[in-house]
Design a protein around this nucleic acid. Sequence first.
DNA 1: TTTACTTTGTTTAAATCTTGACAAAGTGAA
DNA 2: TTCACTTTGTCAAGATTTAAACAAAGTAAA
Lengths: 214, 214
Amino acid sequence: MSKNSISNSVIRRLPRYYRFLGELKDEGYVRISSRELSEKMGLTASQIRQDFNCFGEFGQQGYGYNVSALREEICKILGLDKLTPMILLGAGNLGKAIAAHLDFSSKGFELIGAFDVNPDLIGKEIGDITIKSSDEIESFCAEVSPVAAILCIPTSEAEQMTERLIKCGIKAFWNFTHYDLRASHKEAAVENVHLGDSLTTLSYRLNSMNVNDQ
Amino acid sequence: MSKNSISNSVIRRLPRYYRFLGELKDEGYVRISSRELSEKMGLTASQIRQDFNCFGEFGQQGYGYNVSALREEICKILGLDKLTPMILLGAGNLGKAIAAHLDFSSKGFELIGAFDVNPDLIGKEIGDITIKSSDEIESFCAEVSPVAAILCIPTSEAEQMTERLIKCGIKAFWNFTHYDLRASHKEAAVENVHLGDSLTTLSYRLNSMNVNDQ
DNA sequence: TTTACTTTGTTTAAATCTTGACAAAGTGAA
DNA sequence: TTCACTTTGTCAAGATTTAAACAAAGTAAA
């Protein structure tokens, strides 16, 4: 159990720690100090020790951290030691690509269904999943009880779909639409992606860089 | 010119302001106060006034902000009033989907080229762009001078490709690989997406929600 | 064992970000 | 014009996040 509530800043850094520890393990590292890890990751050693200490005392003075043990701990903290069943809503370009591109099982999820309203897509396959009609969402959920959902539908349909999925028992949303899921629906976990905003941010950075010449 | 250096927190909020102001304009709003906008966006009015004030005094006491004028200002601040030529590296599932799914021109970019090493993809089309061999990157850049790049290649090739593109004059990277572009290459603007980390974060949120029952 | 060194966990300080408060400026109706 | 009201821009307090500092604990070699 966590010492206190974990800040958002720490949570955002955890997946990166997990990735780096995996790489270190593969490279044969058995132990690592916060100082050495800080150099590899471009953080301060102090921050790393603070972050790890949110969850308990995993290190040992004069020694550092055991790479495998620490990685296993973070794995459990992130909930990656179990597979949460997940469905995809909207199997267009982006939905299909995300379903095909990502390794869900290493991120704690298992993709078990995909839905779309487009008759041209229904019946087609993504990996080993057959795209179903959105009409079947309720019956599918009643039968298989997925817990998480990816939203790759048009923004205009996002609010309605969210309500519908919450009624079906969905507890986590990975949201690629522009609909703002954060304020509403506190009963569910939400992660917004907003690719458009991300690209817009790049535009700002590029242009302000040119102006200030730094 | 900016009053001072703009904090990252503010920059991250700007695209969302821009989106909301666009919607308000479409709905016929001529003016809006920070209080009313704060209610719509789920922020504090104070934060909104602070944020807008980073760039100059756009409001008027007793009146509020002119929706169109403010939107235009943010448009300029974000650099959306010009189109930066951009190329796509890696035209696999994800690259293709991103190229097809996003409206680049409203985010300050224009996609003018796509490259891949896979012979099966070379020659195929994404929208009105023909996928070229990665061998042609240098000659293409010499001729057309793109300024921004989307990285949808395998992580293992990201470092090398980045070096190569910087030599070709690329000044902005939208990075979908896990390669860590932030520390290196300060001469270029970088925006990392890291979809895997985003999904991992969702796993944490879902699981800690269940544990704490809140 | 002793000694010199390493490194954590934690405390304290600094920096950053967010919120509350309010004077100054403007609106709009009488 | 006057007056009651609205709303900004800004200052200062509060909260959060990051970094520095260091005692306590352990390592490792003699």
